[in-house]
């Protein structure tokens, strides 16, 4: 469990998720602190990505999915009927495993979110685009070609464009679903640095396959196995003195 002094931003209570007959998440109760980096680790198919996607309700798009239990975001149940999913996703942004810039110019990619939410003023958009690109540490690389297609950038640049795009709508929480797994080490370290910079203003929740990455940048780590949350706690403690045998086996590389 996380430190009691932390301000909690997201909390799940007895969350169960089924894909048809497949019980993919089992009784997940979990409190995620604000302005920290929380890493979700575990072997493939353990439910960590599924859990991440319940937080901005991207699982709604999967046919046949059934969700029980609660996910509270700032004290509101995000699965309550009254919740407007588009507003939720505006506040809980997401960066995907594979960079997915739209087939538009770099500028239009970043401006997409603000435009979606009604910003039309060109000066305001210019300002948001520059700020987001700076926040994503890619402004210097692209400032002279904002009107060129984002698809012409390298993989690592594309992923930072996607981060900038997510930041442009000023979310509170940034979900990162193995966002560095397809990148080279240099791009990866840029994004890791970025995540550490961002946590002063955002809450970052990241799924990662890479345990060194979790250890390097996260404050808290949660270990998932077969749809269960096995262990959750302070990253340093968890990697040095795991309480559960299964966690120890996983982080020492006995399976996974």
């Amino acid at each position: 469990m996380c430190d009691n002094n932390e301000k909690i931003i997201i909390e799940s209570n007895k969350l169960n998720l089924y894909y048809g007959d497949n019980h993919a998440l089992k009784d997940i109760s979990f409190r995620i602190p604000s302005n920290r980096i929380t890493a979700l680790i575990g072997p493939s198919g353990c439910g960590k990505s599924t859990f991440l996607k319940t937080l901005n309700r991207m699982n709604d798009l999967v046919p046949g999915v059934k969700i029980e239990g609660q996910v509270m975001y700032n004290g509101e149940d995000i699965y309550s009927k009254a919740v407007d999913v588009t507003r939720l996703r505006r506040q809980i942004g997401m960066v995907f495993q594979k960079a997915n810039p739209f087939p538009m110019s770099i500028y239009d990619n970043i401006a997409y979110g603000p435009r979606t939410h009604g910003v039309r003023n060109r000066a305001k958009l210019d300002e948001i685009v520059e700020r987001s690109l700076r926040d994503a540490a890619i402004w210097e690389e692209v400032k002279d070609r904002l009107n060129k297609s984002a698809l012409g950038l390298s993989g690592g640049q594309q992923q930072r464009i996607c981060i900038a795009r997510a930041l442009a709508v000023e979310p509170d929480v940034l979900l990162m679903d193995e966002s560095t797994s397809a990148l080279d080490p240099i791009s990866t370290s840029k994004i890791e640095e970025l995540a550490m910079d961002l946590k002063s203003r955002y809450t970052v929740i990241m799924v990662t396959h890479n345990m060194q990455q979790a250890l390097r940048i996260s404050d808290y780590t949660a270990f998932f196995l077969l749809g269960e949350l096995v262990e959750y706690g302070d990253t340093q403690t968890m990697f040095s003195k795991p309480t559960d045998k299964r966690t120890e086996d996983y982080i020492t590389g006995r399976f996974g």
Partner: peptide, 15 residues
């Protein structure tokens, strides 16, 4: 049209 475009758009809060 790649599914990832749709996801990207919806994840930004687009209807």
């Amino acid at each position: 049209v790649p599914q990832s475009y749709r996801e990207g758009s919806l994840a930004l809060g687009a209807g």
